[in-house]
Nucleic acid binder design. Structure first.
Length: 418
RNA sequence: GCGGCCGUAGCUCAGCCUGGUAGAGCACCCGGUUGUGGUCCGGGAUGUCGCGGGUUCAAGUCCCGUCGGUCGCCCCA
């Protein structure tokens, strides 16, 4: 027998109802803020991710599902959502129309990693992107939106906020030099894994879980003390706007993102109940992304939220804001071949009127059908037996109160509306 | 890519240490009520004991390998 590939899993009912509930809630919430849905391909040219996420980044060097198709093209299963959306915008020239472009998605991401709690090789991500404006109010709008969605879903996440400046010697590049100098000075005190990447990705040293490294980093120079005046001003405006909106946050000067395209505002949502993982989502500005892909200057900001992680966190909280119920409202019980055909007809008639209905196709006894009716979650059982068939009626039973009455067939839909 | 633990019925697991050819609960089906569910009672079906190899008269049980799961490192949503 076949099993699902390593690091993937099927989602079956009842869990799947929660997925549907959560993703609908998200897309509805985003739409209410003007973000229209977008769907991009599940695979892209490998180069798209090399040029946006960064050819030196861990995601690109170790985690991508990259393959050659029969035409010899190097393709990659989408490891993140922002670069494909930007690519689609540039390809279709949306940046020459009305700005900002506001898009939302619910799509699978693929990363080759060792699976563990809250981490699989395919995961579903909800995201929204606001593209074409540098206005700090857009940052606040985006952050409030994702915060509100998570809160509505039933979480109380901690919002961590930082600014990592922009790609310029007067700003982040200058800081990285200062940081590298500091790290080289203290390299003997760092854990070996952290020492190894002083030159490749010094910012990530802040994320180390090595005690000895963290001890060193407590005295490390902070990016927030070295960003340029314009970035500082932008960040102050974002904070002010969030305060206006009463969105609470914590400034985390050590918050660093793993994808190269991020600039200025970065943020992350942390919750408990995810095992070793702590983030349900994160995002930030990517003012240089378009240019990295060969497009015009097109600043933007967005976020990505992990559906599996949100659901895990909700489970650990123990409450779902909206526990979905069965959609079957009426169960038609039939006795005899003639009644079974009538049952399909009645079930279909109810469905055409928008009433959830189901019936037995297993040839169950009446007792078995009643049991199945109960199991289906239906409120009503409509019984079609020989007596009913003879008189053109149906017995309508309320499965909660156990009360039942005989009605002419054409009055059944009206009787089970409530 | 590295490490710990685990892999027995559809599900959750016991049995493994101290080898003697499989069990419980739930779920499912049938009956108690040949036209009435959710409760209760009675009965029933189901396993290549992850896979491959080894030790042994005999392996679910011991050994090796492998695949998968899980948790952690790493990385990230």
């Amino acid at each position: 027998m076949f099993a699902a590939p390593k690091g993937t899993k099927d989602v079956l009912p009842p869990e799947a109802w929660r997925w549907q509930w959560l993703t609908r809630l998200a897309m509805d919430t985003f739409a209410l803020a003007g973000f229209a849905p977008v769907v991009t391909p599940d695979f892209e040219h490998t180069e798209l991710f090399e040029r946006s996420v960064g050819s030196e980044s861990e995601v690109v060097t170790k985690q991508m599902y990259t393959f050659a198709d029969r035409g010899g093209r190097s393709l990659t299963l989408r490891p993140e959502g922002t670069a494909p959306v930007m690519r689609a915008i540039l390809e279709r020239g949306l940046e020459r129309g009305a700005l900002p472009v506001k898009l939302a998605y619910c799509q699978a991401m693929f990363r080759y990693e060792r699976p563990q709690k809250g981490r699989t090789r395919q995961h579903l991500q909800l995201g929204a992107e606001g593209i074409g404006s540098e206005n700090p109010l857009l940052d606040a709008e985006i952050i409030e939106l994702s915060t509100r969605f998570l809160t509505t879903a039933g979480l109380k996440p901690v919002l961590l906020l930082n600014s990592i400046g922009h790609e310029d010697p007067s700003c982040r590049q200058g800081y990285i030099k200062v940081l590298s100098g500091f790290l080289h000075e203290h390299s003997a005190e760092l854990a070996s894994a952290d020492r190894a990447r002083i030159d490749t990705n010094p910012l990530r040293t802040f994320d180390s879980k090595e005690e000895r490294t963290l001890a060193v980093m407590r005295d490390a120079p902070l990016l927030s003390d070295h960003i340029c005046a314009a970035c500082r001003e932008h960040f102050d405006a974002v904070r002010g706007a969030l305060e206006d909106l009463e969105v609470s946050f914590e400034i985390e000067p050590r918050l660093v993102r793993g994808l190269d395209y991020y600039s200025r505002t970065t943020f992350e949502y942390q919750v408990t109940g995810l095992g070793a993982q702590s983030a349900v989502g994160g995002g930030g500005r990517y003012d240089g992304l378009s240019e990295a892909l060969g497009g015009p200057r097109l600043p933007g900001i967005g976020f990505g939220l992990g559906v599996e992680r949100i659901l895990l966190a909700l489970e650990s909280v123990g409450t779902f804001a909206d526990e979905p119920a069965s959609a079957v409202h009426v169960y038609v019980v039939a006795l005899g071949e003639r009644a079974q055909r009538a049952a399909l007809k009645l079930t279909t008639d109810l469905r055409r009127r928008g009433i959830g209905a189901d019936f037995d196709v297993m040839g169950r006894s009446m007792k078995g059908q009643m049991k199945d009716a109960s199991r289906s979650g239906a409120r009503w059982a409509v019984i079609l037996g020989e007596q009913e068939m003879a008189t053109g009626t149906a017995t309508v039973k309320d499965l909660e109160s156990s009360e039942q009455t005989a009605l002419p067939l054409d009055e059944v839909p009206g009787a089970v509306q409530a």
